[in-house]
Amino acid sequence: MPRPKAEDRTILLDARAMSRALQRMAVEITELAGTDDLVLIGIQRRGVELAERIARLIETQEPAAATIPRGALDITLYRDDLETVGPKPVIGETHIPADLSDKHVVIVDDVLYTGRTVRAALDELADFGRPKRISLCVLVDRGGRELPIQADIVGKAVKTAPGERVDVQVVELDGRDQVDVTR
């Protein structure tokens, strides 16, 4: 397999930068939402790992708070492009920890790009109840929105072109924490 040339790929966040970003995001979430009604919902796949990590950081930063409920959302069945991309054979688990009514749900995802995933996630969450508020927290906002959607909390914002790729790696799935931009 030909490896991408070094000049094609730049590291946007290394492990230490990613750790700092996540810690800051955890603080910002508690400032925004408190901890009483907070529910973190990660979007499959890497959003789930990031949500888990942020939940643990919040629990460390706020020892007095109760366990933060976290869940996972697979938005495959809510996509608007089944006709053009065909079915995705592997659908991940969807797990909503509790009734979402009157909760402050924070959606966690790795990369925010066109906004279509978030649109699908909002539709899907609405079928699980009526949260009092939904916020969006992403590790990387790469611009390029196709829908009027914006993140409340961003780990790192970067301007990218449509041909470029942003790859988020997390220790749990990929063996290391790193965010690359590939041109």
């Binding site: 697979d74 495959t76 069945l77 809510y78 054979p89 659908i91 991940g92 079928d127 699980f128």
Partner: peptide, 24 residues
């Protein structure tokens, strides 16, 4: 196997409060 694996996440859909997804 693909059909059996794809059926797994669909089990959970029938356990939701709103037993419906917009896929089709």
């Amino acid at each position: 196997r693909l059909i059996l694996d794809t059926a797994e996440p669909f089990k959970e859909v029938s356990e939701r409060p709103i037993k419906k997804v917009p896929a089709l």
